[in-house]
Design a protein around this nucleic acid. Structure first.
Lengths: 207, 207
DNA sequence: GCTTCATGTAGACATCGTCTACACTCGAGT
DNA sequence: ACTCGAGTGTAGACGATGTCTACATGAAGC
């Protein structure tokens, strides 16, 4: 199992343990059934211990979301790095990484984008993490623009279009009405390929 | 205000009142802070009264989601009806209606697509409502296919692409990192127009 | 070895979802 | 008109939860 310190009064790395266990429970049960006390129990500490590391339930959720953003961005970065000088493949693979992340971590993705958290109080953690991820996506698009791949349009607008497609498809597949397709990998592949084709065809220069 | 029966022991139409008040609170505060007791109080009844009409909290959420699906589908239908024999405009206006619904009812949209509800137990209400909405979207696409508007591709796959784009953009705008753009209607318009252009260009036949 | 401070524990409280026992009202059948 | 039963709303209780406060523990520095 993961790091379990059997007898120590002090946990040693409780903050990270809470984030890890919390991530697991969140993906397993959804935001609604996400309980601070249950996370504490899973980490082997009392129900009050988390308050030494997070001001409240929302703060832990924010930390989980922040780590989710970091992981998602890393996955996209890896996808880009694997296809240097191929901006079209970069975008497709980044989108695929996005979808894979969504299928692996539906609960985390949900709170990353404002699900279940109070509508107004989304702290600076979200702002910064989302801004960073967005900036990275814009970079991918810029790569393609410099080689003349895309049509005349601002990189920001193209980015939003690509992001919307990836995000929407991810949610429809991970928690929405298309959830059933997760099992049928062949149909899933065809769907992703078709959506990618529709999006990319619309973004590239016509000729 | 809405129907308020001042002195009657029996409310008369509590079920619908709970759905209405619940919808309002849901959009106002998000799923996490959605409280059955608060809805009951808003409807002017005791905290146990809702259980005469809904088996539990989830059942009320499902009913709210079902009404949301009905409203969304009606809005899309109206958009389609306003542009007969113009399948491209139909799709664009349906997408716009989708986004407007999302901005008006962020909380409802969230639970409509599995947010906050337990991951496995999404009842038949969801299945049927979502299937109906999907069928309607497929119909819009079919309209365009019959006039040769779209490229060679199954209507289902094209529908999923369009749905993903609309859904993703809606969520990014209503509860996600693009929330700030709700205020700037000019930029919002440009964004929607650009995303629509990217999507539709990729769906129509190349020439 | 003692102090100090970060970290974990235990208990309390309000609120929430849910259950159960009871109260009120309306309408059907006499 | 009376009864009575089903439908609907109320009141109180319970366990679970988020959060606060007071206390316990143990590691680090003097």
């Amino acid at each position: 199992m993961s790091s379990r310190r059997p007898k120590s009064y002090h946990h040693g790395s409780l903050r990270q343990a809470l984030i890890d266990r919390g991530t697991h429970l969140l993906d397993e049960q959804g935001v609604t059934h996400f309980s601070l006390r249950e996370v504490a129990k899973a980490a082997g500490v009392s129900h009050g211990a988390p308050y030494r590391h997070f001001s409240d339930r929302n703060a832990l959720l924010e930390a989980i979301a922040a780590q989710g953003f970091a992981n998602l961005e890393a996955a996209c970065k890896a996808a880009v790095a694997a296809h240097p000088n191929a901006p079209r493949a970069q975008l497709m693979m980044a989108g695929r990484a996005y979808i894979e992340f969504a299928l692996a971590h539906p609960g985390v993705l949900h709170i990353m984008f404002g699900g279940g958290v109070s509508p107004d109080s989304t702290g600076p953690v979200f702002q910064q993490a989302a801004a960073s991820a967005f900036a990275h996506l814009v970079g991918i698009i810029e790569n393609g623009r410099q080689t003349g791949l895309y049509r005349e349009e601002s990189a920001e607008n193209l980015t939003v279009a690509a992001w919307s497609m990836a995000h929407g498809l991810s949610l429809l597949l991970s928690a929405g009405p298309l959830r059933g397709l997760q099992r049928d990998s062949a149909q899933l592949e065809a769907l992703i390929a078709s959506a990618s084709e529709s999006l990319l065809s619309g973004m590239v220069t016509r000729n």
